[in-house]
Amino acid sequence: MMFIIFIIFLTLLISLLLSKVKKGKNAKWAKLFRISVVVFSISIFTYWFIQKSVIGVINNSVALQIINKLPQTLDFYVINQNDPEKDGILDAKHVGKIRPEYYRIEYLKMDRSDEYWVVGYLGKKNLVYFSQHSVPNKNIDQIIEVQNYINQSLKLSEKAKKQIDAYNHENSKLGIWIVLDFLLLFLNLVLLLRNKN
């Protein structure tokens, strides 16, 4: 997705520069390019936001229910080991903040893995919960009740921490590019509508 976001940024920037072309035979082509870039960008973002907001049920997935029995709200992540043969490519997912006596459901794709980790943070950097779980039967959904602060493996929790930091860094970077794209999209849209009036 990062590549598409960057391409949208470049095309919107070119479109903004082409708004200066108002006369001559190239003005018509410039306006057509600008309109197509704006329509394309809005379509891509609409599709992406709809896809992100739909519940992430995946075919042949395992439903994981995390229940917080602790007295404090924890921020949970799930890490899935996708390719165990190649030193295990870790895939992190943010489950979200879970209040006491509440739960969240996440769907895990377990076709190339039979293990996942649950990581809980109190605040942004304080890892207070780490557990490792195997999935012997992929037809049975998983229920994890977090009842105490535990770290089952210091070595694996450090690995998980690095993966979650990388995941959050990528999301922050993506967020910055999306904000820049929206700013350029807004400017292009305003200029196009002002020209019509």
Rank of each mutant, 00 (worst) to 15 (best):
N82Y: 05
K31D: 10
A27R: 04
A27C: 02
N126D: 12
Y149R: 07
A63T: 10
A30E: 03
L183K: 11
L70T: 15
G175H: 01
E170H: 11
V118M: 00
K25Q: 07
V21A: 04
K69G: 11
H169Y: 12
R112P: 06
V54K: 13
L174F: 07
K162S: 13
I164D: 03
I14Y: 09
D141K: 05
K23G: 09
K109I: 13
L156Y: 10
E85R: 07
Q51L: 07
L174G: 11
N188K: 02
V119W: 00
T73W: 00
K31Y: 07
I178Q: 11
N26A: 13
I35W: 05
N126Y: 02
S157L: 01
V190H: 07
I66K: 00
L192I: 14
K161T: 11
S19R: 13
L154C: 06
I67E: 12
L16I: 12
E158L: 07
D83F: 05
V21T: 10
K25S: 11
V179R: 07
A63S: 12
E85V: 12
I176P: 01
D141Q: 05
F9M: 09
A166F: 06
I55C: 05
F45Y: 14
V119T: 05
K22A: 03
H169Q: 15
K31M: 08
L183G: 15
N82M: 08
V57Q: 12
P100K: 02
E170A: 14
L17F: 09
E101H: 10
I5T: 13
